[in-house]
Structure formats: structure tokens, C-alpha cells
Design a protein around this nucleic acid. Structure first.
Lengths: 201, 201, 201, 201
DNA sequence: TATGAATGAGCTTTCATTCAT
DNA sequence: GATGAATGAAAGCTCATTCAT
């Protein structure tokens, strides 16, 4: 039953948008009475939060996996960073392209309500990337955190942006550009040990 | 009269959020009757769209200016890109920090309603940057457009993100990181003539 | 319009009771849309409070008047207390008998909600009676207050009780009994100067 | 099972008030399913009526007992009435003070629902007092009934009123005042044989 | 043109009651 | 008997919009 309601919530969210996602509409879409909804969720927000949480949890698992796999596969040696970044990007684009409608609602309409869910999500990805950067000679923890923050937001925003905007160029182009952007940055940051806190560049 | 309504719309938007921005509330804040509002705007969304448009127009003017000034000041020579990028970033952070409350509402709550306003805004910045990149040896138009798209979204998202998130590190750090990220990318893209459309890297 | 709503509130209160006095029902009875109700009253309770307040204000005016008139008419001399009490009782029974349906709802169903309205009403009558008792040699203020509290509640409860219960005896009987009850008490309290604070008798 | 439900009903009534006494809440407090409740009671009101009935039955037993005991103890002779009235009042105040929370809900919130339960209760006390008055020379049955009605309502209302209102004077004061009020009245009614219907109206 | 009272559909939520298990 | 999931009507209230003045 929870399943039906969450599924209905997702469906209504996608088809009618956040403002159209009324409890009555969700209940109707679930083939359930409005009252029943409140036996499984304390209020309307809880339903949408559950939809969001499931999406974010799935995303986090896949993104983490893709990232760690890419790092592992790339191994040590020249071109390593580029290879890992490219693999991660491909995986992210694959993932985000799967449910673009839901992605759109979440990116465009959901940021506001549910308390920091998306921030928490991003924060965990930050931590993961920070850790990996530190194991690859990123210098101080602060430097790694700043670099992670920078890279994670960049990659998240541009990959989702590409999927949602569908600008006029091919996916391969985005992958190339993003790879250049990120790998160049990371190579400079990692190899030289030159880090943000070293000064105003 | 339109002025009063738009100003009231902005005020209510900032103080009560998107969901609190009812027509009655906006009319009251404007010292105007609800009916009058409908003589200048077809519906509620039109008011908020106007608020958004004005903000975006002001932003566009300032961002364009900052960017062009930075490019002009940097002039030709070594370290040019870095200098221009850094100057642009500083100007953007200054600009976005001025009305963070309104910025927050627009970034977090307004994306949903108005048809493509923000996309159009970003598109015009894209064009501007594309042009400048072309005059600096960016190769093909397609390559320049892809690079502009990449850079503009990165810079926009990370500068607003820093202002709104206030992560745990200093503004100078963000400027350093973003400068390294973007300048490194552009230098590679511009000097080598190596561009996205050249192939899968 | 306020009049229509208050009148409708009173009507619905009388015909459907407190629990049946829904906003929709009141609005319908007033020939008004539910929304209109909220242009004149902040919430449902405010409507019912207004109904109650008007009733209590009218009651207070009439009760005070009746009491003071009775005291004045009786003048000094033997049998004075009896005359004054009897006159007051007659006036009260007249007053309460006028809108017995509304009286019933107020006495039986309304005590709970609106913040101390009825207590405040009774308190003011207490003050009035206390004052009169003091001017007739009631001894200490404390004694007068205790006597007033006692007498006011007794008279209020028994007169309304008679109107609402319609027990099996004539109105004249109630007047006689209550007169005997109250006048006897007051005579003992006033003349002898024996007052409550003298001790446990 | 009925016991558990009634006990839960009382508890919920006291802790959440009449409006908070929903069937679900009562069932939960009883550790019973909502469905089970309907196997022992036809509807929600029946549960609350049962709570009320039990309270009233207990009250009736104690009040009758206190009254009869007081009459018996007082015995014949001067001051008898005063002694009996005072003893009864003390007993009533003791009784009502035991569960003031429940008393409050019943007096302030329950009058509205249940059909005439409280009237029946008062009627039985009336009968009892009528009988005693008749055995003490109250004259005609009608006179005794009128006197009983008067005295019972007065005593009931003022004793509960004192417990619930907690006005600013000591319990001893209320006892004194009420004793003076009631004993004076009864002495006049009993000794003189003068009864209501004899009087100047 | 400006008003602002009036609208009424729609919102979220509660709850007495039922009924298949 | 006992359950508790399911119901659905109804509650109080909001708000974008209209229209007679």
C-alpha cells in the first residue's frame, strides 16, 4: 500500500508538478481513499519526501558506485584522472537519463520543501569524493573538501543540466568538455600538491 | 502602478516565499486593491514573472558588464585567462551577495513556474561568452558554444551555490578553486586549439 | 453582512447545536459563500463568540438594569430586601424566557470554547452586586464578595434552570421559593452584620 | 473489555477533552482495536454516556449517603438543620474535589451530548430530598418538591462551582455561606409550615 | 480606472464507522 | 470475537479571480 501511494505520488508529481500534487490527486491515482493516505504517512509532505528519498537513495548508490568503480578501473598511471572522470560522467549521464521527467521535477520544483534532503545528499557525495581525493595526494583536508565541493557541484549541475536542457550538441561533446574541465582541474590540484589554501594562486 | 505591484511582489516573495506570495498579499503590500492588480497583469504568475524578469535583466547587465570588463582589463599576454576569470568571479560574487534573499527564492523556489525565463537568460550569457571565446581563438563555433555552455553553467551554479550554501570555507577559497577550474579549462581549450568537436579526446 | 452572518450563526447554533454549527452551514444559512465568512471573522470561533457576546451583553445590560431598578424601587424599610429580590427575579425570568432556545444552547453547549466569556460576565455581575451589598451594610468587602458570589450563582442557575427545565410547578412558585431563599439569606447577612469571615459559624 | 473501554474513555475525556475523545483515541488508550469498540457499544456517544452514567451513579450513591447520614446524625432539636446542611456540604465538597478534572469535563463539556442523563440524576436527588423534607414537616408534597428542587440545584451548582472556579475565598467561607443560605431557607420553610404555595402569589 | 466584496472550488486533514479476514 | 485497514464525507480555511459599483 505504501508502494502504491509512493508510486502514485511519483506519477502525480511528474504529470502535474509539485503544485498539482494534492493529497486527493495522489490518493485517486493510487486508487485509494484520501483517508487511507494518512494511515501510512503523517502528512502530505511525508509522501513527497518519501518519493524524493527513494530517488536520492537510488541516485546516491549508483553515483557512489559509478565513481568508485571508475576510480578503481582507472588504476595508477598517466591519463588516470581523465579515464576515471570520463567513466564517472558516462555513468552519471546514463543514470540521470533514465527517469528524466522525475529528475526534472526534483531539480526544478522540489528544492524548496523538504528539509535539506538534497543538501544532505550532496554532502555525502562530497564526503566520498573528499576521501578519494585525499588518498590521491590532495594535500590538506581543507583543500580536498574545497576541491570536492567544487567538482561535485560542477559535475552534478552539468550532467543534470545536459539531460534536462538538451542543448544543441551531442552527449559525447558534453562528456569531452566536462572531462577536460574536471580532469584538468584535478590533475593540477593533485599532482603539484598546490591547493586552495596555499594562497591566492 | 506597475512599479508598486512589482516591488510588492518582490517584497512578498522574499518575506513569505513562493507559497506565501498570494495575490491578496501582494496587492496589500502594494497598497492596491486585488482587482487593480488584474488590470496590469493577466494573472498572478505574470506578476512573479515580471519580478523574475527584472531581476534577470539586472543580473544580465551586470554579469555581461563584469565579464566584458574583465576581458578588456586582462588584455593579451601570459596569465590573461586567469586574470579575467578571477575578476569575473569576484564581480559575480559581489553581485549575487547583494540580495541573497531574493536570489534564494529565485534559485530555490521560482524555477518551477515561469516558462523558460531562466533558460533564455542563460542562453544570452552563453552567446556572449561564445563570442568572446571565438575572438580568442576557440576554434569552431560549435566548440566555442560547447565551452561557453560548460563554463557559464559551472560559474553560475558555483557562485550562487556558494552565496546560498555558505559552505565552510572562505570566499577566497572558492575564487581560487573556480579560477583554477575555469582558467585551466579555457587555457587548454583556447591555446591548443583542441576542441570538443575534435573527437572523443 | 456581519449581521447576516451573526444571525445565521445564531440560527444554526439553535437549530443544529454547537457541533452542527459548521462554517459551511453558517455561510449557507446566511446566503453567503464560505469564503465571505472569513472576510468578516478570523475563524469559526469568532462567529460563535460574537453570537455569544451579543447575547451576554444584552443579558448583562438587562440584568444590571433590573437589579438596580429593583434596589431603587424597593427603597429603605421593612420588607425591602424581599421586594427587591422578587422584582429582580421577575425581571430575570422575563428576560431568560425570551429566547429560550438560544439560552439552552449557551447554557448547555457553549461553556467550553470561548475564553472565559461567561466567567467574565458572571464576574461583572458579581462586582455589581458586591457594590450594592456594601452600600447596604454588608460588612467587609470579603464578606460582600462571598455573599455576592453565592447569590449571583444561585439566582442565575435557578432562573435559567427553571426556564430550561420547565419543572412541574408554576413560575410563581419559583419566584416565591427563590425570594425566600435569597431574601432570607441577605437579611441575615446584612442586618446582623454577621459575615462569612466571622468564622465557621 | 467494557471496563477497559470505559476506563479509556474516561482517561481520554480527561486528558484530551470532549473534542479530543475520538473513537480511535479511546480504542488506542484501551489497547483495543477500533472495531472491537463497536461490538460493545453502538456508537461513540454510548461510550461517553457510559462514562457519564458511571460517574453520576457513583455521585448519586455518595451524595445520597452523605445527605442521609447528615440528616440522621443531626437528629432532632435546635440547630439541627444547620448541622445537617453543613455536614452534607462538607461531604459534597469532599466528593467533588476528588476528581476535579473529570468533574470539569462533565460539567463544562458533556452537557450537550447525552439525553437527559444529568436531569435524571438531579431528579432522583430531588425525590430523595423531597421525601426527607416531607418527613420533617414540609407541608404539602408540592411545597416539598419545590423546596427540594430549589435546594438541590443551589447546592449542586455552588459546590461544583466552587471546586471548578476556585474563587478567591476559602472553602470554609463557601461552607458558611451555603449553610446560611440553605439552612435559613429550610428552617423558614419547615418550621412555619409556610410553603411556597401559601405565599403572596 | 480603481475598487474590494464576493465567490466557490479546492486544499489538507480528521474521524465515526464498516467489513473482510 | 477481534482485528485494523479502508473508507469517504465533512471539517475549517485559503486564494486566484470576477464584477457591480
Amino acid at each position: 500500500m505504501v508502494e502504491r501511494i509512493v508510486a502514485a505520488g511519483r506519477e502525480v508529481l511528474v504529470t502535474r508538478g509539485y503544485d498539482g500534487a494534492s493529497t486527493n490527486r495522489i490518493a485517486a491515482a493510487a486508487g485509494v481513499s484520501p483517508g487511507s493516505l494518512y494511515q501510512y504517512f503523517p502528512d502530505k509532505d511525508a509522501v513527497l519526501t518519501e518519493v524524493l528519498d527513494r530517488y536520492l537513495d537510488a541516485m546516491e548508490a549508483r553515483v557512489s558506485r559509478a565513481f568508485l568503480d571508475s576510480v578503481a578501473v582507472a588504476g595508477p598511471g598517466a591519463g588516470t584522472t581523465t579515464t576515471a572522470v570520463r567513466a564517472t560522467l558516462e555513468a552519471l549521464l546514463d543514470t540521470f537519463s533514465e527517469e528524466p521527467d522525475l529528475l526534472r521535477v526534483i531539480v526544478e520544483q522540489l528544492p524548496r520543501s523538504p528539509g535539506g534532503r538534497r543538501a544532505a545528499f550532496a554532502g555525502r557525495i562530497d564526503d566520498l569524493v573528499t576521501t578519494v581525493l585525499l588518498t590521491h595526494g590532495a594535500g590538506s583536508t581543507d583543500a580536498a573538501r574545497a576541491a570536492a565541493w567544487t567538482v561535485v557541484r560542477t559535475v552534478e549541475h552539468l550532467t543534470t543540466g545536459y539531460v534536462l536542457e538538451r542543448p544543441g550538441f551531442a552527449r559525447a561533446v558534453v562528456v569531452d568538455e566536462l572531462t577536460a574541465l574536471v580532469a584538468g582541474y584535478l590533475d593540477a590540484r593533485l599532482s603539484g600538491g598546490r591547493v586552495a589554501s596555499d594562497g591566492p594562486s
